[in-house]
Amino acid sequence: MNQGDTAQIAVLACAVRADERRLLDALDRRKVSYACLDTRQLSFAPGSPPAAFPWQLVMNREIGQVRAAYAARSLQAAGVTVMNDAACIEVCGDKWRTSLALAAAGLPAPRTALGLTPQAGLDALDQIGYPALIKPLTGSWGRLIAELRDRQLASELFEYVAALPGPQSHLVYVQELIVKPGRDIRAIVVGGDLIGATYRIAADLKTNVARGATSKPCPPTPELAKLAIEAAAAVGADIAAVDLVEDRSGNLLVLEVNHRVEFSGFQHAMGDRVDVAGRIADLLIGRASQCQN
């Protein structure tokens, strides 16, 4: 494919961080023509693509969930193909909607409930049991996740939740605490293929690399590969980082699916074994060809 064939590709990002840099470098190595657009400068009007938006395929690397979702919705309404698409971004960006999608696909996950009020969440925890977790419906990098060791602590913490501003804050997402064996697993799926998996190791409950967890390669079993691929499909993701945890019996459960994959820790751990940015770039170029046809 020559440059002219792929000039319709744009990459959306408000900042070029290490992962975006790798992706852009991968596109450069493939001699693909593309535009890198700053989402902070975009606006949309309903009904037609912006005159200055001639691209047919957009890779959405916007780091802000709200901007990412609205940009994808606006572009798709104008006939632009977005990867990942808006529906995927909206599902992955909402833990409850992710839980619903995983359950609909029959995939294993920790026992979870959504209380429509803090009191209802507290009642739901009586069924789930303690220790448990409360997680914000939206949010990343382990922010605002708290361990609830017993009912009294949950009751006290939910008083604070009830005092938070905004109706969405009063929806309480609670989940069985799976005691991790000092690690969880990140599996990256691109175009329906598992391209690799890493353990994310941390003594802390939160095993996010962004919080200092370290990564090392995880040999993917057939079970892991199947579950990761099915989880990505359940949320409609072309590109996904599926976070998995092993329970006490060694069974794998899906914790979440991330639509804007951060892969620096993964890539560092995997070294030359896999080129995440290259695989994503190849998928993007292949999809660009389909957009043209």
Binding site: A15, G64, G139, S140, W141, R143, N258, R260, V261, E262
Partner: peptide
């Protein structure tokens, strides 16, 4: 100076 991390930033 780069923008501060916002509440909805992340994966």
């Amino acid at each position: 100076l780069a923008p501060e991390v916002e509440e909805d930033w992340g994966e």
